[in-house]
Nucleic acid binder design. Sequence first.
DNA 1: GAGCACTGC
Length: 806
Amino acid sequence: MSDNPYLAHLAPSQRGASSSISSSDKEPLYGFLPRKVKGSQVRDAMNHKLNPFTKQPHSAQYRKILEARRSLPVYSQMDEFLEIFSKNQIIVMVGETGSGKTTQIPQFVAFSDLPHTKGKLVACTQPRRVAAMSVAQRVADEMDVQLGKQVGYSIRFEDMTESGTTFLKYMTDGMLLREAMNDTELSRYSTIILDEAHERTLATDILMGLLKGLAKRRKDLKLIVMSATLDALKFQSYFSLHNSGEEPSPAPLFKVPGRTHPVEVFYTQDPEPDYVEAAIRTVLMIHRAEDPGDILLFLTGEEEIEDACRKIKAEADDLINSDPSSVGPLMCVPLYSSLPPQQQQRIFDAPPKQSQEGYPPGRKVVVSTNIAETSLTIDGIVYVVDPGFSKQKVYNPRIRVESLLVSPISKASAQQRAGRAGRTRPGKCFRFHFRARRTDAPEILRSNLANAVLELAKLGVKDLVRFDYLDAPAPETLMRALELLNFLAALDDEGELTALGGIMAEFPLDPQLAKMLIVSPEFKVSNEILTITAMLSIPNVWLRPPSQRAAADQAKALMTVPEGDHLTLLNVFNNYYQNKSDRNWAWNNFLSARALAQAENVRAQLLRTMERFEVECISLEDERKRNMGKNMPSAYVRVLHANCSSGGEKGSYLTVKDNQVVALHPSCGLDAQPEWVLFNEFVLTKRPYIRTVTEVRPEWLLEYAPLYYDLNAFPDGETKRALLKLTSKRRAITGNGKDANEKKRSSKELKGGGKGGKGKLTKGKLKGGSKDKSTGWSKDEVKKKVPAWKDGKATLSDYFVSGGFI
DNA sequence: GAGCACTGC
């Protein structure tokens, strides 16, 4: 039974009984029986003069850190955890903020599982890179080892592990999924811990389905799913045990209390007609009336946040000017992801000092998107103002469009937001009356699944529809994904993964872009396409500071290639690359240096993948570069939804198969309005737009995407008529009845057309107009319903009632 | 003449 080399010499009676043996004389792990370890043994080993894993004496800071660990709630339940871990293959664990689960549980597992004695690893997944990195660093310190040795992390672009040495690895969920594509048994791992499972990222959801099946095949694999309280039951029944002849029993639950300060929650009694207005009012009333402590206000997006910051500042200045002795100075800081890192850092600045001895102290207000809900933690927050909305992605499979809609948040989100007030001392949370949804729809129900379906196929899942999803996607969403992958020739007509599909899955790209890149050597433009796919994988590179809009637009015009936005992106990257020695080049040209550095990183990673699969990196000869405008899209049309013809109102296009009316996005750099264009992205904001657009010749569509543009199976409409006209003209010219493309159509490499622009349209209420998002009231109605508060008579208690503590 | 909730490979 024992495969632990440390135990081989022991008599059975000695095994698992370290407490009876003087711990200081023996090796720290003396008597440890894998997966039968007790809390007393682990505590002895932690107290041993030697590090159990390096056999070196402990450093001075080790004892100090250990002392702090002992006060974590999860630490006092070590015995209970080890027992439940010994007895079960799958455990659901619940631990609220501050319980210490993310740092301690993987260490407990390492002591019990002893992965290093059998050449295995314990993995702990995280939804975000920064979390994987910082937790790994913390745990390496706690275990008194060097990061990257016994304890490491693995994220995109960085593998901080040492093969043969690392036995505890923190990693992003996406990274583990990628590993599973090449080893579906995940045989390197003895225990896998899925942390933050309640966040229900696409990768964690797929991993749960995969690991549930894998645990049945690999009885030696243990699985721990860590989540927030509200979701625990769902996970327990999903991972329930099915013993023959018995009712399925839910997976065992291990629960640890959190350790945060109490937060009192206050509610408004009536719905707020305009939540931004009400939020600003609430912030200022807190500032005027409440004890010192910083404020965190949650709003939905950049525009709303900048607007609120301006208004809060103006109102606060008013208050100070009218009576500097009654209120302190207020500093208002915006926070959202597209903000340059330097400005993001401002949320950590200290609040302003009191203006004069004896006057009230200053206060900091952070106005943030959801980024402050999970990704970023700000110390010193005592008050949270939560109107209860966030922007959420929705996917409409009928028209293949993803869009962002302002929607009410879930109970879990509201709780998480309130918790942000209790990190340093007891706090208060002011919520507006809102009907929180019981749960958030997981990402898998809100996304275009083309990528996920390709990954599942690569993972060897045969029946994608009947895969054991925790929440099964809509059949139509799966059909759209299968249809697209079939057009791209990643899946054959039977739904089996093709060789091409297998390679496509290896690229960290959308399937359309992966296909475009893989076929690009046929067009002798793969070097250029490589750059373009990298540029399409990163956030917007164009900066447009409000104070310098004209200069920014001018700089962009200089970089623009009139033939199309894709060539403009290529041009931007090449210029960036040539000017890399100049640190200020990006800023001087109103480009994001961060985004460009990211593009360079992505490009290098894609190039490595190309080399692995012998996709040649070919660049055009200099004299042919002038022809890029024609050559580049000819590779592109095979993979993107190149399906717009002009029609209807001026300036608008029709998508070729769904007949959606769309307009060129104002950021588009085309100097004319060509009849046919292909696009990268379909966005729905004030109206449907296509973004990143390049002119295309219709004959290229017929030639290089014959499957998609098979006119015999094409829906009737303007596009079909235009394409038919084109083919009859060409027949007349070539003089024979056969379409010149028919030969190519039989060619295997050219099989697979293109379609499926990213983007979406939804029925949801459009932004804009003068109606308030939450109530539908007009601005005039809002004015009437918002009472004056600045006269000093109104107080927080006129608006809010206490709803107890969380 | 508009925008970019947030992650991840």
